[in-house]
Amino acid sequence: MIRTEEISFRVGTFQLQRLSINIAKGEYFVLLGPPGSGKTIFLECLCGLKKIYSGRIYIDGRQVTNLEPRARGIGYVPQDYALFPHLTAEQNIAFGLRVHSYQHKETQARVAETAELLDIRRLLSRRIHGLSGGEKQRVALARALVLQPKILLLDEPVCALDEVTRQEVCVQLLDIQRRLGLTTIHVSHNLEEAFTVADRAAILNAGILQQAGPLDELLAKPNSKFVARFMRREKNLPYRDNTNHKK
């Protein structure tokens, strides 16, 4: 469903280096990594918000490397949600439909249906400034889902929430993803989140993909000290680390 072939991107001194990932249709894929590892940039490259300088991106077998963001059919929920502050929750959700010139009735029906799915009907008339973090997160998700994308990109979707809500929302995200059959990339720096939702995961550090696979595999067979450390298995490394003995 989503395939990247050695994509590279540079901004200042940071570089996303020849990143290749394959994500199957309907898969819930979690991209893990410490802050500043390039996770958000990777999502923005997939969306077309950043132009890669080498490599190729395929969605559903079609090359989209040079397509505009609007032509890629991707639903995107950025970190901090970026809800339009001059619109109500309902207007935010209906935004994409209005841009695509949907009829008023169909717009209303689709907004109502999506609001029902996410249990946010009571929020529709509210202004964005008055919403809590969790409410904003669901409105932003609704805004992305209302266009019925096949792919959903979530950038740290629960990082602004408290721990209890975070777990709850992760379960809801997984439930929605399964119901709608969405191919999802969920970016996070939190391992617990990944264990709640991920079919597979990848670990990114300093713009380099360290390892990708099912979480059990990452846990059992980390291929580097960094992955082991990230998976908190440093003491039981099944590999020999020679980096400290080099001169």
Binding site: E44, C47, G48, L49, E68, P69, R70, R72, I74, G75, Y76, P78, D80, A82, F84, F95, G96, V99, H100, R143, A144, L147
Partner: peptide, 10 residues
Amino acid sequence: RYENVALTLG
């Protein structure tokens, strides 16, 4: 980011 999101929304 607001404009970026709008671009992904069509």
